[in-house]
């Protein structure tokens, strides 16, 4: 019986990107995590910025002035893009994790067809949906900037 501990070989965060077969769903998995962290960061900053209102109208106006530049408009659009993807992919995950769109167990006969293949149309569908939401939001942003 081996008692010594071996050399650590856990992939860490790199394992979110590599270590498997690099299928579409791995990228959706990783992007879902990254957009989730991005949205969380935005919410924290949002609370910090809007909390200036507690210190009076002048502090509120100064706070709003600091975040109204062009870079922040781009940042807001990125937040919107993250929302569009995260929400659309979240719907897919709710469906898949409740056992929908992944098919029933089958006898594995080579070449194997897995649940990943079964739900691929749904994955592509949510990408199209996220793209449509992003396009509509982008149009709105551009219209807002032009005024």
């Amino acid at each position: 019986m081996l008692d010594n501990k071996g050399h650590p070989n856990r992939l860490g965060v790199w394992g979110w990107l590599g270590g498997g077969t690099w299928g579409l769903e791995r990228y959706l998995y990783t992007l879902h995590r990254l957009t989730g962290l991005g949205l969380l960061l935005y919410f924290l900053l949002h609370i910090v910025v809007t909390s200036a209102r507690a210190f009076g109208p002048e502090a509120w106006a100064a706070s709003m002035g600091r975040v109204s530049g062009g870079v922040f408009v781009l940042g807001e659009f990125l937040v919107f893009a993250a929302f569009a993807f995260h929400a659309s992919n979240g719907v897919r995950l709710i469906l898949v994790e409740l056992g929908f769109a992944i098919g029933n167990p089958i006898e594995p006969i080579y070449p194997y067809r897995t649940s990943v293949h079964e739900q691929r149309p749904l994955a592509l569908g949510i990408l199209v949906l996220a793209g449509l939401v992003l396009a509509a939001g982008g149009y709105n942003f551009l219209a807002h900037l032009s005024h």
Binding site: G19, G20, T21, G23, E25, R26, L28, Y29, T30, H32, R33, L93, V96, E97, I102, G103, P105, P108, I109, Y110, Y112, T114, S115, V116, Q119
Partner: peptide
Amino acid sequence: HYAGECSQACPKGVDPAR
């Protein structure tokens, strides 16, 4: 959260993700 890699990597077609 359904990265699906386990099912793609399985050499026996077991489909753990499903």
